[in-house]
Design a binder for these strands. Sequence first.
DNA 1: AGGGGGAGCTGACACGTGTAACTTGCTCGT
DNA 2: ACGAGCAAGTTACACGTGTCAGCTCCCCCT
Lengths: 333, 333
Amino acid sequence: MTDSTIRRVTSADVAKLAGVSRATVSYVLNDTPHQTISAATRGRVIDAATSLGYAPSAAARALRTGRSDVVLCLLPDWPIGPEVGTLLGNLSTELARSGMTFVAHPGSQADRPIADLWKAITPAAVLAFTDFSPAEIDAMRAAGVALVVGLLGRSTSPRRELEVPQQRVGRLQAEHLVTAGHTRIGYAYPDDDRVRIFAEPRLEGARLTCAARDVTGPAVRVVPLDAEAAEPAVRAWHDEGVTAVCAYNDDVAMAVLAGMRRLGLHAPADLAIIGVDDIPAARLAVPALTTVTTDQAAVAAHLATTVLAAINGRPIPPSELSGIVQVVQRESA
Amino acid sequence: MTDSTIRRVTSADVAKLAGVSRATVSYVLNDTPHQTISAATRGRVIDAATSLGYAPSAAARALRTGRSDVVLCLLPDWPIGPEVGTLLGNLSTELARSGMTFVAHPGSQADRPIADLWKAITPAAVLAFTDFSPAEIDAMRAAGVALVVGLLGRSTSPRRELEVPQQRVGRLQAEHLVTAGHTRIGYAYPDDDRVRIFAEPRLEGARLTCAARDVTGPAVRVVPLDAEAAEPAVRAWHDEGVTAVCAYNDDVAMAVLAGMRRLGLHAPADLAIIGVDDIPAARLAVPALTTVTTDQAAVAAHLATTVLAAINGRPIPPSELSGIVQVVQRESA
DNA sequence: AGGGGGAGCTGACACGTGTAACTTGCTCGT
DNA sequence: ACGAGCAAGTTACACGTGTCAGCTCCCCCT
């Protein structure tokens, strides 16, 4: 028995095996510029490293550099859907291409103060869906976080990179309905308070378009995800002459459809309805649901360049929004 | 201008302000056992730490301890739905209660070798939905990862903690249909290869129950998420006398419903159908979809205790499965 | 009276890495 | 012939923390 406890392979081990100094190993493996290493030595080091299965210690590297290559995303405390899921996936891929590592922390700032989080990881940047207090931002800056991006919310200090796209979603919904000739618009608001940060900018977008196109509305009503509970809202819209409704998302839109069915109403004849997200169920619904999709890959690419620019001290590029959000026309509107 | 570059607050700063040694600061802030610190000193240290806003460097701590308190979860490369989302959220909360920090890395092992991942973070444990190769596991162990848990997959070396629950899902679906009197069962398999790791154990569960209850089936057919494309599968089942179908999940189940509608068939009279997940659209469908839910909180609790036990060197407790998976009966079966 | 021992604290080292500063040959221009 | 200059490395320090060993009192027991 040589050694009961397994030991980490360090760069010193690699150095010893390759017959060079530890510094040389570091220079070789990091491709440090302005350092001249002979091809022979370089080869020996690389061979030694691979044969030992050497992986540098993230902790030591982060300690020395003062900066890790981790980008942390704080998720909101409601269960994320496939859309946010793909966004995160794309963002991860995009950042990986530049050597960054993307991780997400799910939910519940409540039960764990987020302070502990950038204490536990030392991220190069932090993205968050929710608001940050100025004090929190200062604390994170002091801890060495290069960039803090708020995606949505009330505060202005961190840029709200997702605010405008979300507004565009609402505008596009309303545009579509108004262009189809509707003059009284409704808005189906979600029953879950936790998604307010998404719902508010979308509603605001619809509101702006209604004002700009000079139609009445939007008449906002909360629509629970239940056929029976959705019925009163649908009846109220119908009674007050609303002929088309923007829904917060496809689930809410399908609740509106379910409520209509109970009342014997048909879409789009009696009431047109447009959702958001294009979930699989949307195209399977009766009638097939007209909806709005977001090009998550493009959004991810923009967020990635924003993060990378901030980390490298370059100016943050302006958002390129055209074409990111699009209507998928089916039958319901 | 005192200092252009902001400096980290270290424990040395706290020590200086409190008028004690750095070791004392460490002892106080970590509540180190078998160390006696006077109440007065303890107070001074804590005051100094809070007034300076001291947050220990995760990197340095991880370097020294050789172990971070981060639990890393490698997500599969398909967009995760709300169910997995809640599972992750619950797991995060559960682990946070014990001082662990949970983070998830979305998708695409392809574009980034996972090696880089536990190189970038130094997790105490790694959970993964996908398979690990033995070589990868060895490498991670060598890098100081205490526990490697494979949730699903073919390999046997890491425990597949989610395998059995997923099988139970399939069994429960089939049980429900058989108990309702059906004797020819079909299985609606997803069109997306990426979800195979979930689909296989569910199908296996259905298969086991069919064998045990001595009914013919399951007759497996791939059902795309499109009404027209789903039609042939439905017709084939109907022609061969299948009267009930287990679907991989609610989306696939709704595709089956859509296919039936095109053929003028009605559920459950002509063909009973049962889904999985209880997504919001399930209760809004016509007919309302019977489905199977998983108690994600219970699963998360079990995973959390498993992880904590392994980290602390305690034996891993057996899975407590009873009641974790349940049928939600509606109209479609 | 004397020393054993515990309370309360400090000094010093190790963790593994990146990198600035320094050394040693060797070539090459004049 | 002789230093300038460059290729090819090495030595040494710093990053911030946890913790072991040790140090100084002072109390208390016999």
